[in-house]
Design a protein around this nucleic acid. Sequence first.
DNA 1: CGACTGTTTGAGACGCCTCAACAGATGTGG
DNA 2: CCACATCTGTTGAGGCGTCTCAAACAGTCG
Lengths: 264, 264
Amino acid sequence: MDRIGFTHLLPNIGSCYSCFKKEQCLAKRLPSNDVEGLSTLVSNNIKYRSGDYIYRQGDTSQNIFIVKSGATKSLVNSVEGNEQVIGFHFAGEVLGFDALDTNQHASSVIALENSIICGFSRQLIDKLCATDATFQKELIARFSCEIVRDYQLLMLINKKTAEQRGAIFLLELLARMGYSRGQVIYLDLVMSRADIASYLGLVPETVSRVLSKFERMGMLVVKKKKLQIVDNELLVNYSNDHSLQQLPETNEIEDTAIPLARLY
Amino acid sequence: MDRIGFTHLLPNIGSCYSCFKKEQCLAKRLPSNDVEGLSTLVSNNIKYRSGDYIYRQGDTSQNIFIVKSGATKSLVNSVEGNEQVIGFHFAGEVLGFDALDTNQHASSVIALENSIICGFSRQLIDKLCATDATFQKELIARFSCEIVRDYQLLMLINKKTAEQRGAIFLLELLARMGYSRGQVIYLDLVMSRADIASYLGLVPETVSRVLSKFERMGMLVVKKKKLQIVDNELLVNYSNDHSLQQLPETNEIEDTAIPLARLY
DNA sequence: CGACTGTTTGAGACGCCTCAACAGATGTGG
DNA sequence: CCACATCTGTTGAGGCGTCTCAAACAGTCG
């Protein structure tokens, strides 16, 4: 499951200077003569296996991490033991913004598949911020982006039906994978139904039902963790408030009369 | 409604140097000889009336703001026109972190009462970051704090009952107002029931019902926007998962016996 | 092969929303 | 000052969407 296609070509430990992902990195615009020296402050290319923790809620550290390949989920545990997934993270994304105030991570991050991740110590962050205005601005931008993402998740969980959440989730995933509309595309869910459910504020059964319904409608084809998106427009339609524009489900066998009744 | 007690003593426009809130300010530790010059880059002590917008979702700017006195709410509008309150902000808190990546605010902020707010231009932020490591770290800390706050709000909205949300909301408000446990205290809700409901992912009717129930239980006394917290411990108890330890509600006609029943 | 986890599907329960009516507070203009 | 409209907040009755609980199945691993 090599998401980027050529991970196997990389040495396990490499300098930032030769990193094939440096354009996506937080520190992408560092002058190259600095980069080499800085690599001593970076944990390069750490391999994590599926299920491994990158860090745990409560860990005392101010490291931040950058996903180089693979995928992770972040989650928060409440005092009562409830656990909620608050994000999925793919290549190029930054983790660990939650510890830079309190010196304790407010969330845990777990690899969803075998992943390669770089770490920046707080020492390095401060050094880069002090010497490189570009890095500093990039860091601020990433922070801001994360906050906006949280807002969107809040909007998603609040006051949307399970079907809307499902549709929006899939569209978000498609967008992050770089797919545009109108293509017949295949989507690889790296996370479990339970993860999706937790992220969307639902239970796994409901997620399963939503996906099944989408499949019955001809919107997509579900095969375990592999999805084929057949009708992207329908998905977009469903992600909006469709209370007034209810589309007929697969009518043949069972209904026929019901959708007509629903039409006005 | 003078939350801090001596707003009226302040001049409308003053330098940062003489600001009585500089200890709480993002720029609190600036060397005093710099502060005077910087005040030209700060919009000092702008007065907003209740209902005024500090900024609107979609506004093109990268200013950030600091609430000096008063209170605000921030909210996000979805494409379908739904609106959700995502935060309340009191003196000392920073607003506007959501525009530093895209150069567009992802949320709106509205004054809940007459408020005094300072603004920092992006130009100033960058200048301070470049010259003052302390400011830079403080900014990062505020960012991180905001992200953790968002996580907590997500946990609050997801999988909690209306009563838990109500209890947690009140406790959060108490904590931010600096009250500790065990006191009989008065709480002044500056926001409407609709604002609370939106923030908690509920409808105003439900918020009203929850508050009424808390009052019937002897937990607090509701009088419009003024609350008296009578039994803080009970509130804490209710904020946890009380499915297994359901406390008896008012069974008798009205009261009298209720406090006694609650004593163990 | 049997345990185990993850997923799907169904039936019923329950919590919150919706809709409606009403009360109280606030503001406006005559 | 009152009549009126408007807005906020409260309370009740009923409906609906999601959760809960249960069962069955598939896939994986020992």
